[in-house]
Protein backbone atom coordinates (compact mmCIF):
# COMPACT_ATOMS: atom_id res chain seq x y z
CA UNK A 1 0.00 0.00 0.00
CA UNK A 2 1.17 3.49 -0.84
CA UNK A 3 2.31 5.51 2.17
CA UNK A 4 1.09 9.00 2.90
CA UNK A 5 4.49 10.30 1.83
CA UNK A 6 4.29 8.50 -1.51
CA UNK A 7 0.75 9.71 -2.06
CA UNK A 8 1.83 13.29 -1.41
CA UNK A 9 4.30 13.05 -4.30
CA UNK A 10 1.80 11.76 -6.84
CA UNK A 11 0.15 13.93 -9.47
CA UNK A 12 -3.31 14.97 -8.41
CA UNK A 13 -6.14 13.62 -10.56
CA UNK A 14 -8.61 16.20 -9.28
CA UNK A 15 -7.04 19.60 -8.69
CA UNK A 16 -8.22 22.65 -6.79
CA UNK A 17 -10.01 25.62 -8.27
CA UNK A 18 -13.26 23.76 -8.85
CA UNK A 19 -16.50 25.09 -7.50
CA UNK A 20 -17.49 22.57 -4.85
CA UNK A 21 -18.69 23.99 -1.54
CA UNK A 22 -16.06 24.57 1.14
CA UNK A 23 -15.76 21.33 3.09
CA UNK A 24 -17.28 19.14 0.36
CA UNK A 25 -16.85 15.50 1.41
CA UNK A 26 -17.32 14.09 -2.08
CA UNK A 27 -14.58 16.14 -3.75
CA UNK A 28 -12.18 15.21 -0.93
CA UNK A 29 -13.06 11.55 -1.48
CA UNK A 30 -12.54 11.74 -5.25
CA UNK A 31 -9.20 13.47 -4.77
CA UNK A 32 -8.07 10.69 -2.42
CA UNK A 33 -9.34 7.98 -4.75
CA UNK A 34 -7.50 9.40 -7.76
CA UNK A 35 -4.31 9.70 -5.71
CA UNK A 36 -4.64 6.03 -4.76
CA UNK A 37 -5.12 5.14 -8.45
CA UNK A 38 -2.33 7.37 -9.75
CA UNK A 39 0.33 4.66 -10.03
CA UNK A 40 -1.33 3.73 -13.33
CA UNK A 41 -3.06 5.80 -16.02
CA UNK A 42 -6.69 6.33 -15.06
CA UNK A 43 -9.75 7.05 -17.19
CA UNK A 44 -12.97 8.05 -15.46
CA UNK A 45 -16.68 8.27 -16.12
CA UNK A 46 -19.06 10.38 -14.07
CA UNK A 47 -22.80 10.74 -13.61
CA UNK A 48 -24.52 14.07 -13.90
CA UNK A 49 -24.57 15.44 -10.36
CA UNK A 50 -22.72 17.67 -7.92
CA UNK A 51 -19.23 16.49 -8.74
CA UNK A 52 -19.69 16.71 -12.49
CA UNK A 53 -21.28 20.12 -12.24
CA UNK A 54 -18.70 21.74 -9.99
CA UNK A 55 -15.61 20.31 -11.69
CA UNK A 56 -16.33 20.60 -15.42
CA UNK A 57 -17.87 23.98 -16.18
CA UNK A 58 -16.65 24.69 -19.72
CA UNK A 59 -14.04 25.96 -20.56
CA UNK A 60 -12.51 24.80 -17.26
CA UNK A 61 -11.93 21.37 -15.85
CA UNK A 62 -10.49 20.22 -12.53
CA UNK A 63 -9.62 16.80 -13.93
CA UNK A 64 -6.06 15.87 -14.77
CA UNK A 65 -7.17 12.49 -16.09
CA UNK A 66 -9.52 11.71 -18.98
CA UNK A 67 -13.12 12.06 -17.89
CA UNK A 68 -16.29 11.19 -19.79
CA UNK A 69 -19.63 12.53 -18.64
CA UNK A 70 -22.68 11.16 -20.41
CA UNK A 71 -25.95 11.47 -18.45
CA UNK A 72 -27.37 11.07 -14.95
CA UNK A 73 -28.14 7.37 -14.83
CA UNK A 74 -25.47 5.80 -17.00
CA UNK A 75 -21.98 6.32 -15.65
CA UNK A 76 -21.63 2.54 -15.18
CA UNK A 77 -22.80 1.69 -18.72
CA UNK A 78 -20.70 4.48 -20.23
CA UNK A 79 -17.56 3.43 -18.38
CA UNK A 80 -18.22 -0.21 -19.29
CA UNK A 81 -18.23 0.92 -22.92
CA UNK A 82 -14.85 2.60 -22.45
CA UNK A 83 -13.49 -0.57 -20.88
CA UNK A 84 -14.83 -2.59 -23.84
CA UNK A 85 -13.19 -0.15 -26.26
CA UNK A 86 -9.94 -0.51 -24.35
CA UNK A 87 -10.03 -4.30 -24.70
CA UNK A 88 -10.80 -4.11 -28.42
CA UNK A 89 -8.18 -1.45 -29.16
CA UNK A 90 -5.57 -3.23 -27.07
CA UNK A 91 -6.16 -6.43 -29.05
CA UNK A 92 -5.56 -4.48 -32.23
CA UNK A 93 -2.35 -3.02 -30.83
CA UNK A 94 -3.72 0.53 -30.94
CA UNK A 95 -3.34 0.95 -27.16
CA UNK A 96 -0.64 -0.33 -24.85
CA UNK A 97 -0.36 -0.79 -21.09
CA UNK A 98 -2.89 -1.03 -18.32
CA UNK A 99 -5.52 1.55 -17.55
CA UNK A 100 -7.64 1.95 -14.41
CA UNK A 101 -11.30 2.57 -15.20
CA UNK A 102 -13.25 4.36 -12.48
CA UNK A 103 -16.89 5.37 -12.71
CA UNK A 104 -18.27 7.92 -10.26
CA UNK A 105 -21.86 8.58 -9.32
CA UNK A 106 -23.71 10.18 -6.47
CA UNK A 107 -26.38 8.30 -4.53
CA UNK A 108 -29.01 9.66 -6.92
CA UNK A 109 -27.14 8.32 -9.94
CA UNK A 110 -26.30 5.07 -8.18
CA UNK A 111 -28.90 3.99 -5.57
CA UNK A 112 -31.80 5.24 -7.65
CA UNK A 113 -31.84 6.23 -11.32
CA UNK A 114 -28.63 4.41 -12.27
CA UNK A 115 -29.09 1.19 -10.29
CA UNK A 116 -29.99 -0.86 -13.37
CA UNK A 117 -27.03 0.47 -15.32
CA UNK A 118 -24.70 -0.40 -12.44
CA UNK A 119 -26.23 -3.84 -11.90
CA UNK A 120 -25.81 -4.64 -15.60
CA UNK A 121 -22.20 -3.45 -15.72
CA UNK A 122 -21.22 -5.50 -12.67
CA UNK A 123 -22.99 -8.61 -13.94
CA UNK A 124 -21.14 -8.30 -17.25
CA UNK A 125 -17.82 -8.39 -15.40
CA UNK A 126 -16.12 -5.27 -16.74
CA UNK A 127 -12.82 -4.62 -15.02
CA UNK A 128 -13.72 -1.27 -13.55
CA UNK A 129 -14.24 0.34 -10.18
CA UNK A 130 -17.55 2.03 -9.49
CA UNK A 131 -17.47 4.62 -6.72
CA UNK A 132 -20.68 5.92 -5.24
CA UNK A 133 -20.09 9.21 -3.46
CA UNK A 134 -23.05 8.87 -1.19
CA UNK A 135 -24.13 12.17 0.33
CA UNK A 136 -27.52 10.73 1.16
CA UNK A 137 -29.79 12.91 -0.98
CA UNK A 138 -30.05 14.66 -4.34
CA UNK A 139 -27.76 17.49 -3.28
CA UNK A 140 -27.16 18.89 -6.77
CA UNK A 141 -30.80 19.86 -7.21
CA UNK A 142 -31.24 21.13 -3.67
CA UNK A 143 -31.36 18.29 -1.12
CA UNK A 144 -34.22 16.04 -2.20
CA UNK A 145 -34.61 12.59 -0.67
CA UNK A 146 -33.04 9.54 -2.26
CA UNK A 147 -33.22 5.89 -1.29
CA UNK A 148 -29.88 6.52 0.47
CA UNK A 149 -31.42 9.18 2.72
CA UNK A 150 -31.57 7.80 6.27
CA UNK A 151 -34.73 7.44 8.31
CA UNK A 152 -35.94 10.67 9.86
CA UNK A 153 -33.78 13.00 7.80
CA UNK A 154 -35.24 16.27 6.65
CA UNK A 155 -34.85 16.85 2.92
CA UNK A 156 -36.77 19.20 0.65
CA UNK A 157 -38.98 16.32 -0.52
CA UNK A 158 -39.18 14.62 2.87
CA UNK A 159 -39.50 17.76 4.95
CA UNK A 160 -40.05 17.71 8.68
CA UNK A 161 -43.54 19.18 8.68
CA UNK A 162 -46.23 19.64 11.27
CA UNK A 163 -47.50 16.11 10.75
CA UNK A 164 -44.65 14.13 9.20
CA UNK A 165 -41.21 14.35 10.85
CA UNK A 166 -38.83 13.88 7.90
CA UNK A 167 -38.21 10.75 5.83
CA UNK A 168 -40.35 7.87 6.99
CA UNK A 169 -38.48 5.09 5.21
CA UNK A 170 -35.19 3.38 5.96
CA UNK A 171 -32.30 3.77 3.54
CA UNK A 172 -31.54 1.04 1.03
CA UNK A 173 -28.53 -1.19 1.67
CA UNK A 174 -26.86 -0.69 -1.68
CA UNK A 175 -23.53 -2.24 -0.73
CA UNK A 176 -25.31 -5.48 0.09
CA UNK A 177 -27.19 -5.35 -3.22
CA UNK A 178 -23.89 -5.04 -5.06
CA UNK A 179 -22.36 -7.87 -3.01
CA UNK A 180 -25.23 -10.06 -4.23
CA UNK A 181 -23.79 -9.64 -7.73
CA UNK A 182 -20.62 -11.46 -6.61
CA UNK A 183 -18.25 -8.68 -7.75
CA UNK A 184 -14.47 -8.96 -7.50
CA UNK A 185 -14.46 -6.56 -4.55
CA UNK A 186 -16.90 -4.39 -2.62
CA UNK A 187 -16.44 -2.06 0.33
CA UNK A 188 -17.80 0.85 2.33
CA UNK A 189 -15.54 3.77 3.12
CA UNK A 190 -15.61 7.44 4.06
CA UNK A 191 -12.96 10.15 3.54
CA UNK A 192 -12.46 10.73 7.30
CA UNK A 193 -10.66 7.38 7.33
CA UNK A 194 -8.52 8.29 4.37
CA UNK A 195 -5.89 5.56 4.58
CA UNK A 196 -8.69 3.00 4.78
CA UNK A 197 -10.19 4.51 1.62
CA UNK A 198 -6.80 4.51 -0.15
CA UNK A 199 -6.24 0.87 0.73
CA UNK A 200 -9.69 -0.08 -0.52
CA UNK A 201 -9.18 1.72 -3.82
CA UNK A 202 -5.89 -0.12 -4.32
CA UNK A 203 -7.57 -3.45 -3.59
CA UNK A 204 -10.51 -2.66 -5.83
CA UNK A 205 -8.29 -1.70 -8.76
CA UNK A 206 -6.10 -4.77 -8.28
CA UNK A 207 -9.11 -7.11 -8.22
CA UNK A 208 -9.70 -9.03 -11.40
CA UNK A 209 -13.17 -7.83 -12.30
CA UNK A 210 -15.80 -5.29 -11.35
CA UNK A 211 -15.44 -3.62 -7.98
CA UNK A 212 -17.53 -1.21 -5.98
CA UNK A 213 -16.88 1.22 -3.15
CA UNK A 214 -19.67 3.06 -1.39
CA UNK A 215 -18.17 6.23 0.06
CA UNK A 216 -20.22 8.12 2.64
CA UNK A 217 -19.50 11.74 1.72
CA UNK A 218 -20.76 14.40 4.14
CA UNK A 219 -22.42 17.38 2.48
CA UNK A 220 -22.13 20.77 4.19
CA UNK A 221 -25.31 22.45 2.90
CA UNK A 222 -27.39 19.28 2.61
CA UNK A 223 -26.64 17.93 6.06
CA UNK A 224 -26.34 21.33 7.67
CA UNK A 225 -23.10 21.69 9.61
CA UNK A 226 -20.08 24.06 9.64
CA UNK A 227 -17.77 23.41 6.71
CA UNK A 228 -14.73 22.61 8.87
CA UNK A 229 -16.59 19.68 10.46
CA UNK A 230 -16.69 17.37 7.39
CA UNK A 231 -13.96 14.99 8.46
CA UNK A 232 -15.19 14.91 12.07
CA UNK A 233 -18.69 14.01 10.92
CA UNK A 234 -17.26 11.43 8.54
CA UNK A 235 -15.44 9.83 11.49
CA UNK A 236 -18.46 10.15 13.78
CA UNK A 237 -20.54 8.19 11.23
CA UNK A 238 -18.15 5.28 11.78
CA UNK A 239 -17.82 5.67 15.56
CA UNK A 240 -21.61 5.59 16.01
CA UNK A 241 -21.92 2.57 13.64
CA UNK A 242 -24.06 4.70 11.33
CA UNK A 243 -21.66 3.86 8.48
CA UNK A 244 -19.68 0.66 9.15
CA UNK A 245 -16.37 0.43 7.32
CA UNK A 246 -16.17 -3.04 5.87
CA UNK A 247 -15.13 -4.87 2.78
CA UNK A 248 -16.22 -8.00 0.98
CA UNK A 249 -14.14 -10.20 -1.24
CA UNK A 250 -14.68 -13.76 -2.35
CA UNK A 251 -17.58 -14.22 0.03
CA UNK A 252 -15.71 -12.99 3.09
CA UNK A 253 -16.84 -9.93 5.04
CA UNK A 254 -14.19 -8.00 6.95
CA UNK A 255 -15.18 -5.15 9.23
CA UNK A 256 -12.26 -2.74 9.12
CA UNK A 257 -13.16 -0.56 12.08
CA UNK A 258 -14.86 -1.93 15.18
CA UNK A 259 -15.24 0.89 17.69
CA UNK A 260 -14.46 -0.48 21.14
CA UNK A 261 -17.23 1.58 22.64
CA UNK A 262 -19.61 2.68 19.90
CA UNK A 263 -21.12 6.07 20.51
CA UNK A 264 -24.90 6.47 20.52
CA UNK A 265 -26.16 7.47 17.08
CA UNK A 266 -27.49 10.76 18.44
CA UNK A 267 -23.86 11.92 18.68
CA UNK A 268 -23.85 11.77 14.88
CA UNK A 269 -27.36 13.10 14.41
CA UNK A 270 -27.05 16.14 16.67
CA UNK A 271 -24.22 17.60 14.60
CA UNK A 272 -26.53 18.08 11.62
CA UNK A 273 -29.42 20.42 10.88
CA UNK A 274 -31.20 17.74 8.83
CA UNK A 275 -31.89 15.88 12.09
CA UNK A 276 -32.63 18.95 14.23
CA UNK A 277 -36.33 18.12 14.49
CA UNK A 278 -35.74 14.67 15.96
CA UNK A 279 -34.46 16.29 19.13
CA UNK A 280 -37.63 18.30 19.69
CA UNK A 281 -39.69 17.25 22.70
CA UNK A 282 -42.12 14.54 21.69
CA UNK A 283 -39.82 13.13 19.02
CA UNK A 284 -37.74 10.94 21.31
CA UNK A 285 -39.17 7.86 19.63
CA UNK A 286 -37.51 8.89 16.35
CA UNK A 287 -34.03 8.76 17.86
CA UNK A 288 -34.89 5.45 19.52
CA UNK A 289 -36.14 3.98 16.24
CA UNK A 290 -33.03 5.28 14.51
CA UNK A 291 -30.75 3.72 17.11
CA UNK A 292 -32.63 0.41 16.99
CA UNK A 293 -32.22 0.27 13.21
CA UNK A 294 -28.50 1.09 13.32
CA UNK A 295 -27.87 -1.48 16.07
CA UNK A 296 -29.79 -4.15 14.18
CA UNK A 297 -27.81 -3.47 11.00
CA UNK A 298 -24.53 -3.64 12.92
CA UNK A 299 -25.50 -6.93 14.58
CA UNK A 300 -26.37 -8.35 11.20
CA UNK A 301 -23.04 -7.26 9.78
CA UNK A 302 -21.17 -8.87 12.70
CA UNK A 303 -23.06 -12.12 12.05
CA UNK A 304 -22.22 -11.96 8.35
CA UNK A 305 -18.56 -11.45 9.15
CA UNK A 306 -18.62 -14.33 11.62
CA UNK A 307 -20.48 -16.63 9.23
CA UNK A 308 -18.17 -15.91 6.32
CA UNK A 309 -14.94 -16.67 8.18
Amino acid sequence: MATLKELAKRTEGLVGGHRACAGCGASAAIRQILLAAADKPTVCGICTGCMEVVTTIFPFTAWNVNLVHNAFENSAATTSGMEAAYKALKRKGKIKGDINFIAFGGDGGTYDIGLQSLSGAIERGHKMLYVCYDNEAYMNTGYQRSSATPYGAHTTTSPSGKKIPGKQQKRKDLTEIIISHDPAYAAQATPGYYMDLIKKVEKALAADGPSFINVLSPCVPGWGYPSEQTMNISKMAVETLFWPLYEWQDGVYTINVKPREPKPVEEFLKLQARFRHVFKPGNEHLVEAFQAHISRQWERLLRKEEASK
Binding site: V68, N74, A77, T78, S80, G81, A84, A85, L89, A121
Partner: peptide, 14 residues
Amino acid sequence: HSALSACCGASAAG
Protein backbone atom coordinates in the same frame (compact mmCIF):
# COMPACT_ATOMS: atom_id res chain seq x y z
CA HIS B 1 -30.51 2.88 -22.64
CA SER B 2 -27.34 1.18 -21.51
CA ALA B 3 -26.68 -0.02 -25.07
CA LEU B 4 -26.38 3.50 -26.38
CA SER B 5 -24.68 4.69 -23.18
CA ALA B 6 -22.00 2.01 -23.55
CA CYS B 7 -21.72 2.88 -27.25
CA CYS B 8 -21.10 6.52 -26.26
CA GLY B 9 -18.40 5.48 -23.79
CA ALA B 10 -16.75 3.23 -26.37
CA SER B 11 -16.99 5.84 -29.10
CA ALA B 12 -15.62 8.57 -26.83
CA ALA B 13 -12.79 6.17 -25.99
CA GLY B 14 -11.88 6.07 -29.68
